[in-house]
């Protein structure tokens, strides 16, 4: 509705204006404002994302690594060859020397859904509480959003220090209540996965909370008043007014949450590093193939990248389609 008016104006102008360059000229005449405003982003994004992305997809069909890539310093030309679908076959076979794909996938899903579910639950509860009139609301809001403002590597440092087995505060507390042998949180066990998920939940709640708080404030008052007149209990008001009112924000927050969390690199990288198989997710493993080890297997890293992209594309397509059937739009 908003855009149709603008379109009307520009169409009107297009019709009366002379068209010295024929159809293309008319097209440009009608849309040049829009394209002029869009072009910086299209150029920057096109060059910086599209070219490397296409190159990356191509790499995933080759055997490129540190010994076959072109090396201008040694004046060595590229020697890598196209190997077809070999990389995909190797990775998808689940062979441990190619990263035990299904094990990593399970961990990635656990990491993603563990984080997103709790981001949403905690974010929702806090947003509902903050949306009430109460003393100190502004202060609570500032304190609760603070984790978002702190650079990831500072938070990672803070949590690594808290989780430290010997002089971390958590284990000091456990010893204090009589646990003789408190666990090594960030060691080679599934506790490490638990720990990084806890950190990621802590990091992500503020964003969800703020987005949902915005959504709550856009729910019309009259709906709550009507519900109260009808004698709805607080729970009924929450279930029948608040939640439906948040559908649109929730759809977006959850979609972005899944996409972002799937590809969160910094938290695991900074807390347990890339050498802990217990906290391996797809993106950290791709990085591990890519940077550590003598081989620098760019081809396998690229393959993991393409597989990640494909899975998220499938998820998003289904997600958006289901939403559209329900009359919602998330992006």
């Amino acid at each position: 509705m908003v855009t149709s008016t603008a379109e009307g104006t520009s169409q009107g102008r297009g019709a009366t204006a002379p068209r010295p360059w024929g159809r293309l000229g008319a097209f440009l005449h009608r849309h040049w404002y829009a394209y002029a405003m869009v072009i910086p982003v299209v150029v920057v994004v096109g060059v910086i994302v599209l070219i490397p992305l296409l190159q990356n997809i191509y790499f995933s069909f080759t055997n490129i690594n540190d010994s076959t890539i072109a090396n201008p310093v040694l004046d060595r030309p590229a020697r890598y060859e196209v190997v077809g679908l070999d990389n995909y076959g190797n990775v998808l076979s689940g062979d441990p020397s190619y990263g035990d794909f299904y094990d990593i996938l399970v961990r990635t899903l656990l990491w993603t859904f563990g984080s997103v579910v709790f981001h949403y639950l905690f974010g929702l509860v806090l947003a509902v509480m903050l949306n009430r009139t109460l003393k100190g609301r502004g202060l609570y809001r500032v304190l609760l959003i603070l984790p978002w403002a702190v650079p990831a590597f500072v938070s990672a440092f803070a949590w690594r220090y808290l989780f430290n087995a010997d002089y971390g505060l958590f284990n000091a507390g456990l010893r204090g209540i009589g646990v003789a042998d408190p666990p090594t949180w960030l060691g080679q066990s599934n506790l490490a996965m638990f720990a990084v998920i806890v950190v990621n939940i802590w990091l992500g709640v503020p964003f969800t909370m703020v987005a949902l708080l915005g959504g709550l404030q856009s729910i019309p008052n009259e709906l709550y008043e009507a519900a109260e007149i009808d004698g709805a209990t607080p729970w009924q008001r929450f279930a029948n007014v608040t939640l439906p009112g948040l559908r649109s924000v929730s759809a977006t927050v959850i979609l972005l949450g899944v996409i972002w969390t799937f590809n969160v690199f910094s938290v695991i990288f900074l807390i347990t590093g890339t050498n802990n198989p217990n906290t391996r997710i797809l993106i950290t493993y791709a990085f591990e193939r890519f940077f550590s080890g003598s081989t620098r297997d760019y081809a396998i890293a690229a393959t993991y990248g393409v597989l990640t992209l494909s899975m998220l594309l499938v998820f998003t397509t289904i997600y958006l389609r289901v939403l559209r059937r329900q009359g919602e739009e998330a992006w």
Partner: peptide, 10 residues
């Protein structure tokens, strides 16, 4: 959706 760190070489 694309893991950006993988694009470091390109």
């Amino acid at each position: 959706m694309f893991p950006f760190v993988v694009l470091i070489v390109p």
